[in-house]
Design a protein around this nucleic acid. Sequence first.
DNA 1: TATGAATGAGTATTCATTCAT
DNA 2: GATGAATGAATACTCATTCAT
Lengths: 206, 206, 206, 206
Amino acid sequence: MPRKVREQQIIDVAVGIFAKRGYHAASVDEIAELAGISKPMVYLYLDSKEGLFLACLRREAERLVAAFQEAARGAGAAPELRLYAGLSAFFAFVTAHRDSWVVLHRQASELSEAIAAAVAEARRAVMAEVAGLIRDGITESGRGARLGGQDADFVAHALVGAADSLTDWMEHHPGQSPEAVTLRLMNMVWVGMRDVLDGEAWLPEG
Amino acid sequence: MPRKVREQQIIDVAVGIFAKRGYHAASVDEIAELAGISKPMVYLYLDSKEGLFLACLRREAERLVAAFQEAARGAGAAPELRLYAGLSAFFAFVTAHRDSWVVLHRQASELSEAIAAAVAEARRAVMAEVAGLIRDGITESGRGARLGGQDADFVAHALVGAADSLTDWMEHHPGQSPEAVTLRLMNMVWVGMRDVLDGEAWLPEG
Amino acid sequence: MPRKVREQQIIDVAVGIFAKRGYHAASVDEIAELAGISKPMVYLYLDSKEGLFLACLRREAERLVAAFQEAARGAGAAPELRLYAGLSAFFAFVTAHRDSWVVLHRQASELSEAIAAAVAEARRAVMAEVAGLIRDGITESGRGARLGGQDADFVAHALVGAADSLTDWMEHHPGQSPEAVTLRLMNMVWVGMRDVLDGEAWLPEG
Amino acid sequence: MPRKVREQQIIDVAVGIFAKRGYHAASVDEIAELAGISKPMVYLYLDSKEGLFLACLRREAERLVAAFQEAARGAGAAPELRLYAGLSAFFAFVTAHRDSWVVLHRQASELSEAIAAAVAEARRAVMAEVAGLIRDGITESGRGARLGGQDADFVAHALVGAADSLTDWMEHHPGQSPEAVTLRLMNMVWVGMRDVLDGEAWLPEG
DNA sequence: TATGAATGAGTATTCATTCAT
DNA sequence: GATGAATGAATACTCATTCAT
C-alpha cells in the first residue's frame, strides 16, 4: 500500500479520535489500532503524536478554507455574493464534517507552540479571506472613504466569531438549514455595516 | 489560616496555571507549590483535579456574568443602553482578566461530562442575559411583530460569538480601548438588526 | 469523659471497621469520625494505627479465651465435658461476635512483626487451653502410656483448625445451632482419639 | 522473550512477594524490579495489581488442587486410600511451596470482591474433592443409611480446617514428615468417623 | 516494510502522622 | 483535654516513544 494512502487513512482515523476524545485523552495506541496498523508505523509516517495532530489540523483547515474559497470564487464578481457563497459553504462544511470542525475549533489551547501556531495560521487564513471580501465590498460601494484597513478586519473578526458561535446554535436547532442561517447572518451584518457606513450611527445617548 | 481564604488562594493560582498550560498539562503539583501549600491540602479542599478546575470555572463564570449584569442593570431602562453597558463590561473584564477568559473559553473540550456541563451552563447564562436584552429591545421598538423567540437567540449567539472573537482581535490591536470596540460592535449589530426589522432585507440577488 | 471509657469506645468502633475493611483499607480518619472524636485523640490514646489494631486484637482475644475458659471451668471435673463446654462457648462466641472473629482470624498476614506476634500469642493461648484439656482427658482415661506431650498438641491443632473451618461452614448453614456443631465435632474427634488410643489403628493398607 | 514465559516469571516473583509482604504492602514496583522487567510490562500482561494477584491465586490454587487430585486418582479404588494419598500430597505440597500456601491461605480478607471470590472458589474446589471422597467412603462402607449429604460436607470442613491448622503445626515441628502427619490425621478423623457411623456416640453426659 | 516487546518519565491520589492553638 | 490545619512519603497506573527482529 503506497505511503500517501496509508498516511491519509491514519489521518482519517485520527481526526475522528481527536474529535471524540480531545488531544490529550486520545491515545496513539487507539489510533493505530483503529487504523489497522502498528504503532511504530504511525511514528514512521507522522513522526510523533504532535506531528499526527498537526497533519490532521492542516488537512482539515485546508479543506475548510478551500471550500470557502471555491464557493466564493464561483459566485461571480459582487463581493457580497462571494461572501454569501463563502459563508454558505462554511456552514455546509461544518454541518457535514463535525469532526473536522471540532478538531479545528476546540483544541486550540493547552497545546504546544507548534500546534497553537498552526491553529492561529488557519484562523488567520480564514480571516484574511473574509476581510478581503469585506474590504472589496466597502471599496466597491464607494463608502470606503472614512475607513482604514482595520475596519474590515474588525468586521471580519466579528463575522467569523458570529459564524463559529452560530455553528453551536445550529446544533441545537436542527430544523435550520445552513442556507437559512447564512442568509440571516448576512442580513444582520451586511445591512448593519452598510448603514453604518452610510452614517447611520448608534450612540449610547440613543 | 482559615479554610475559605486558603481555598480562594488556591483557586487564584489554579486559574493562572490552567490558563497558561491547559487542563491536562497543568499539574496539581505545580499548583500546590505555587500556592505555597502541600498537595494533600488541595485535595482536602477541592477534592480532585476536576473539582479544582470546576471551582475555577464556576468562580470565573460567576464573576464575568456578574460584571455583565451589574453594568446592564445600572444602565437605566433602555434595553439598547443596557446591552451596550453589558458588552462594555464584558470587554473590560476580559481585558483585565485574560486568565479567567482563557479558562472559560478555551477548555471546553476533551474534559469530563461535569466540566463540559459547567462550561455549557456558563455560556447559557450569558446567552440568556443577552438574548433577554435583545428581546426587550425588539419588543420596545415595536418591531417585534414578525419575530419569534428564536430570533433573539440567533442574534444573541451571533453577538456573543462576535464578542468572543473580538476579544482575540483586541489582543492584536492594543491601541483599541474596550469602549471603542463595544461601540463599534453595537453599531454593527444593533443598526443591522434594527434595519432588518424595518424590512430592509438583503437577498442573494442583491 | 474518663480516658478508659473513651479508649473502649474507640476500640469498639475500630473492631467494626477493621472487620469490615481489613487492616490496610481501614482508615484512621473513618474510625475517628465514627467514634465521634478527633484524630489526634486517637493517636494520644492508642499511639498509632498499629497500636490501635493491637488493642483490638488483644481485647477480642482475651474475650474469646475468657469465654472458653469460663465455660470449661464451670463444667465440672471431667476433661471431656470441659472441652465440650469450651468448644460450645467458642462457637457461641464467634456466632455472636462475628467482627471479633474476623479481626482475630483473618488479619494475621501482611502485618507487622508486633501484630503477627499478638495473633500468634492469641492462638497459642487457645491451643494451650485446648491441649491441656486433651492431655487431662488422655491421662485420666489411663490411655496415656503410649503418648508424649506432642500428641495432645497435635490433636489440639487439628481440633482448633477444624473449629475455625466449621465457623465458616456454620455461616452457610444457618439452621445449625452452635450446640449441634459442637456435639458433632466432639463426636468425631473424641471418639476417634479414644479409639486410636485404644489401639484401633488405621493404616494405608486398610 | 515470548509473552507466556514472561508472564510466568512475573507470577513466580509475585507469589514470593505477596507471600512475604501481603497484598497491600507488596508494591508492583518491587515485583517488577525483582522480575527484571519494567512496570508497564506487568500492567500490559496482568492488567492491574489485582489482576496480578488473581493470576497468582489461580495458578497456585490450580497446582494445589491438581496435586491433590493426581495423588488421589493414582491411589486405586478405595476411597480411604485416595483420601490418604490426597492429604499426603497436600502436606507435601504446602511443605514444598510455603509461598503458594501463604498466598492461598492468608490473603482472603480485606481484598476486593473478585479476589475474595477466587479464594472462595479455590477452597470450594478443595472441599468438594474431599467431601466426595468422604461420601464415597461412607457409601462404600455401607454405613451411609443414617447420613444426609450435609454430613460429608461437615466432615470435609473439619478435615480441611484441621489440615490447614496442622500446616502451621508442622512449621514448628520440623522433625515431623508430611507422611507422618497425614497418617495421624487420617487415624483421628477416619477412625472417629467410622466409629460414629457405627453408633458409638459421645454425649455430654458421658 | 512491519511489529511484538519493552521502558522512562510522569501524574493523580491517599494516608498515617504531627503541629499550633 | 481537644482540634483544625497541615504534610512527607508512597503507590497504582498511563503513555509517548523506541529497539530488536
